[in-house]
Design a protein around this nucleic acid. Structure first.
Lengths: 240, 240
DNA sequence: CGGAAATTTGAGATTGTTCAAATATGGTGG
DNA sequence: CCACCATATTTGAACAATCTCAAATTTCCG
């Protein structure tokens, strides 16, 4: 009954699931990825994965956990620019890159590996390109979030973004996701105070928008919540 | 004494100045650009250059005036995501691009043209890549600006960004720039109210940080102002 | 069971908003 | 050159959102 060796195990590696959805990976890509996956490194929570100004020699692929691109002001104020989830890439610099003055910080314990080189036209390269484009779209969303949404809306918008991204990576299929973020970390991402984040979470709980307990976040009705703030999911193949 | 015909006239086209500084353009690139430049189109202030969701078939190059990428919420709130100045490119999509749900709005009258194709390794393609990278760096800055700076700091930070970019395009060499933006437009870029923007401008005037009158902005001491908010100019060749 | 970290609560201080009106400013036609 | 209009800036005062600072509580982990 023993079947021939199947394709490399993609079943439970969110990073593979995600890349595979961005562009159908061929066998070459799969095996390169699997080779990389085996040489995984890890970073402890609160440690820097890539320090500010450090020259990234190779792009990295997040496998497990949450990291974030963070910028710190001289007086200590801190802004989390974006979260990096399994399947996200770091330092994919297409060309001479103005060395982005930002640090990559492990929010939880993080596992990552070197992202195998992908020729621009190979499936892997296409997946990378799509990934970059998606990342940029989320950056634009973050600007609108911080500029024009109020505290509660910001919270909802961020939670919806994370849900959407987790679903893409196959980490969840329903409306629940792991939520290891401290209210303080959330505050630094939302441009708010942790005290105020706390109050907004409680408000949203009372209103039945979400359930947040025991490290799990459930969003009652993502579509309804999204339409309240004019949020449309980031589309993967929008044309262009 | 008549010299041989010089290279195409780059002397007073900010877009050429900028691209030429991002990557030394060879004669081929110069002449392609000049050909494009001659077929310039224009858009009136307050008109859309590219409507939301519209498929961009060709990348565009801004030649004169100010445009902005803008996102509008269902209830009318508006966020200007970034400004597009002479030499900036629109719709440089490297690959399948999640059709960015944002509109390009002409803030002033704008002249633009089709950006000539640039092979990835040709000088033009390199200039485009650097341009993209710079744009992304400014997006990250915008997130920090909106998330962690207060009203007056946001104003200063934005003004410094624009000054920096205008200098790169050779539009100004001192610390003065044209400032055609309405306080209302500034407010939409800064995530503030036009009333509050007004008050912050007056405050900065009183403190001697800037002079703003007659459509011209002068920043008294850019370096000093920048260091007050931990702002470091975006570097063009940061390694990587 | 302890202790450190995270969440929650309260009350007052700030910052930024809202609404409305007053005052420039710039461009246009006469 | 002036009067006039539309648009942009400026001002005031009340209000709302968010922050700050401290002090409980609760939760998590060993």
């Amino acid at each position: 009954m023993s079947a021939p060796t199947p394709l490399p195990d993609v079943s439970n590696e969110p990073a593979l699931t995600r890349l595979n959805r961005l562009a159908a990976l061929d066998e070459a890509a799969q095996s390169e990825l699997n080779a990389s996956l085996r040489r995984r490194r890890s970073a402890q929570a609160r440690r820097e994965v890539v320090a500010e100004g450090e020259v990234i020699t190779e792009p990295l692929l997040i496998l497990r956990g949450w990291a974030a691109r963070v910028r710190v002001l001289p007086d200590g104020r801190r802004q989390l620019i974006n979260f990096l989830l399994p399947g996200d890439l770091i330092g994919l610099c297409r060309h001479p890159d103005p060395c982005t003055a930002s640090t990559i910080l492990a929010i939880t314990d993080v596992q990552y590996c070197t992202a195998p080189r992908g020729a621009p036209d190979a499936p892997l390269g296409i997946a990378y390109a799509v990934s970059r484009a998606i990342e940029e779209a989320y950056l634009l969303s973050a600007i609108t979030r911080l500029g024009r949404l109020n505290a509660q809306e910001r919270l909802h918008d961020l939670f919806l973004e994370v849900l959407e991204r987790m679903q893409l990576a196959g980490i969840t299929s329903d409306n629940s996701i792991p939520m290891p973020l401290t209210q303080e970390v959330l505050a630094d991402a939302l441009g708010l105070t942790s005290v105020h984040v706390n109050r907004m979470i409680q408000l949203s709980r009372r209103q039945g928008h979400l359930v947040l307990a025991g490290g799990t976040l459930t969003i009652t009705d993502p579509d309804a919540l999204g339409s309240m703030i004019g949020r449309s999911p980031v589309r993967i193949w929008g044309g262009c």
